[in-house]
Amino acid sequence: MQWVLNIAVIVVGAFTIRPMGLSGRGLAVAALFAVNCVVMLARALPEGKVPQRVAVVWLGFGCVAAAALIAATHDGTGYLFAYFIAGHIGFRLPARRALALAALCSLLCGGALYFRIGPGYEALPWVVGLTTGIPVLVGMVNGSQRRAVLAAIAAAESAERAARAEARAAVLTERGRIARDVHDVLAHSLAGINMQLELADALLDTGDLDKVREANDKAHSMVKESLKQAQWTVHALRADSLPLVESLTAMLDSTGHRESLTVTGTVREVPAQVTQNLLRIGQEALTNAARHAPGAPVAVELTFTADATELSIRNGPATRAATAGVGSGMGLIGMRERVALLHGTISAGPITEGPDEGGWHVEAVIPG
């Protein structure tokens, strides 16, 4: 719409403004007409590309050119350029500078008519010249609306970028969770199965078939346990709710610590994520106990308090030689990550006193 109006003012001015020619006063009017067209069409220049000082100079020059066009012509619609330039001033400049330039435009145009500088408009009162600055208010409103729209668009784009970043963070968090589950299910289970199969292979050379069968049975038992763990992982990924006490009991039963669980407090259903992470922490602690302290007694305590669920696993010192091996180093890191995601706390370290001195303890506290 703005472009249509600008072009219309130029076309109408080209046909009505007189004198206009290639010599004398007509040439001066033609030059002023061209200057006013350029100043008015310069509205299309992007605001960020034109320094404010340059805009003040060119628009101030436009006010002078508009007043000079009014003074130099004796007929036509040359005064419309002053109105449009004043509107552009309000659109382009801050309020204080815009009002100052608009006042200058009014004074110059009104003075040109009042003092009859040049032929002027015989039928146009000088008060009309004073009104040429009024469109600055319209320009200020339009500029304010445009800036508000741009700010809203920028805010929407910023919110969209934030949403994309949050989505990427959620994907990375989920990847981390799945990586921990894969570590827990595969690294521990397959390492244990591999140890038993290597033991069975070594025992074949001794001819002790009973021990070979025992190692083979242990490997089969670990395979079954791995399948259970895989089921827990699938349940967790589907956000299904697992019964914490029953699942923990089944885990201890499969590892040969059937009677080691003590439950205190009022048993209640906890969120699936809390159940899954507590089970994984328990599994990690039991696997480490079996690896580094074989034959050691294990005590597991699950406590339900008013505002938290606590899981404690303690094991004594080893009663037989541990099998040499190097862990992945990710177990304790994974436990800390799990608890941190649920805004809980975890402590893990050696036991330095009491009947279990020389053993290890892990205690996780998760709110809710």
Rank of each mutant, 00 (worst) to 15 (best):
3 W>D: 08
7 I>D: 05
8 A>S: 12
9 V>S: 04
10 I>K: 11
11 V>L: 12
12 V>C: 09
13 G>D: 10
14 A>R: 12
16 T>M: 06
25 R>H: 05
31 A>G: 05
35 V>F: 13
37 C>L: 07
43 R>K: 10
51 P>K: 14
53 R>F: 14
63 C>W: 06
64 V>C: 03
64 V>S: 00
65 A>D: 00
68 A>K: 00
69 L>H: 03
79 Y>Q: 10
86 A>V: 01
86 A>K: 00
86 A>R: 03
87 G>N: 07
89 I>D: 00
95 A>W: 12
100 A>I: 13
103 A>V: 00
104 L>R: 07
105 C>I: 07
107 L>Y: 10
110 G>M: 07
115 F>Q: 10
116 R>G: 04
117 I>V: 11
118 G>Q: 00
119 P>E: 04
120 G>Y: 09
122 E>S: 03
126 W>Q: 08
134 I>M: 02
135 P>Q: 13
138 V>Y: 03
141 V>T: 12
143 G>R: 07
144 S>E: 13
145 Q>K: 14
146 R>V: 11
148 A>T: 12
150 L>S: 14
152 A>G: 13
158 S>N: 11
159 A>L: 08
166 E>C: 06
167 A>Q: 15
168 R>A: 15
175 R>V: 10
183 H>Y: 11
186 L>I: 10
187 A>P: 02
189 S>D: 00
190 L>D: 13
191 A>S: 09
195 M>V: 15
196 Q>A: 14
197 L>M: 08
199 L>Q: 15
199 L>N: 10
199 L>R: 15
204 L>K: 05
206 T>H: 13
206 T>E: 08
208 D>A: 03
208 D>F: 02
212 V>M: 14
215 A>M: 05
215 A>V: 09
216 N>Q: 12
221 S>I: 09
222 M>D: 05
227 L>S: 05
227 L>K: 02
234 V>N: 01
237 L>R: 12
238 R>I: 00
240 D>H: 11
240 D>V: 02
241 S>H: 01
242 L>V: 02
247 S>V: 09
249 T>A: 04
252 L>Y: 03
261 L>P: 02
267 V>A: 10
268 R>P: 01
269 E>G: 06
277 N>A: 09
277 N>M: 07
281 I>W: 00
282 G>H: 07
288 N>K: 05
291 R>T: 14
292 H>D: 11
295 G>C: 06
297 P>F: 15
300 V>G: 03
303 T>I: 04
312 S>I: 12
313 I>V: 08
320 R>S: 08
322 A>C: 01
323 T>H: 12
324 A>F: 09
325 G>H: 06
330 M>W: 13
333 I>D: 14
334 G>E: 02
335 M>F: 14
337 E>K: 13
346 I>F: 02
348 A>Q: 07
348 A>G: 03
351 I>E: 03
351 I>V: 13
353 E>D: 15
360 W>I: 05
362 V>E: 09
364 A>G: 06
